[in-house]
Nucleic acid binder design. Structure first.
Lengths: 126, 126
DNA sequence: CTGGATCCACCAGGATACTG
DNA sequence: CAGTATCCTGGTGGATCCAG
């Protein structure tokens, strides 16, 4: 058995309201350019706002702010404010966020091993 | 050990050219609205162009065509033409495409189990 | 039936400037 | 330091028409 037959992965199971399909739910969450990158950065250790900006160099402050807010609203990261002046705001993974990264392990391993062959095929296909 | 420590998941490993990071490679591939949905549909059985369009009702013909072409160029699906009139074109998963679905199993399982709690949190957060 | 070509609307997201 | 507000652009993708 090579396929994930134990999970509900057939579209037919969600016919009629595809937007409720977990596949779309999760892709809408982490399929954007920044969410997963930020989660992986926070996996190493909790970090502050500007440190995250430096860890993901090509993210704008606007997207850093909005993406963090979404991740927090979804319970994937926590946000802690020290009311010093200037304030120090720290972000970190929640258990749920960590469990998401765990669930992504096989996918990332697949990406690492398969990407070279895919790029070769793509060049061949034009 | 709950984290996927055996895979190279830290951004620091790809500092300097984030675009080569496998995380981005795979998200650029399946992070769009349609690719994964089509792969899952083809998991059940090879299918023809219009059958795929009916299985994913809200996809436009344009996106169906372009997405299938990308998936084929990446070696995730195959394309077979019967030169009848009118022609019959069938698409199906390649072994590589199947291995990608396998790698996505844990993520989809996570999505199914966690989505309800996430939606509840999101409502609470506003 | 299986697409390609063209046009166009929408919006994600960058740049910039400002605030507590 | 940690954001917010505004403006604006580039690309994604739908609609439509055409073709083999």
């Amino acid at each position: 058995m090579t396929t994930a037959d134990t999970t509900m992965t057939r579209l037919a199971d969600w016919a009629g309201d595809l937007d409720a399909c977990p596949v779309r739910q999760v892709l809408d969450r982490i399929g954007d350019r920044w969410s997963l990158l930020l989660l992986l950065t926070l996996k190493d250790a909790p970090q502050r706002f500007n440190a995250l900006g430096r860890a993901v160099p090509d993210i704008s402050r606007r997207m850093l702010s909005t993406t963090l807010k979404t991740l927090e609203a979804d319970g994937l990261i926590w946000r802690s404010v020290e009311a010093t002046t200037p304030p120090a705001v720290t972000y970190g993974l929640t258990p749920r966020g960590l469990s998401l990264i765990d669930a992504l392990g096989p996918l990332m391993e697949w990406a690492i091993t398969q990407t070279p062959a895919i790029l070769a095929d793509r060049r061949r296909a034009g």
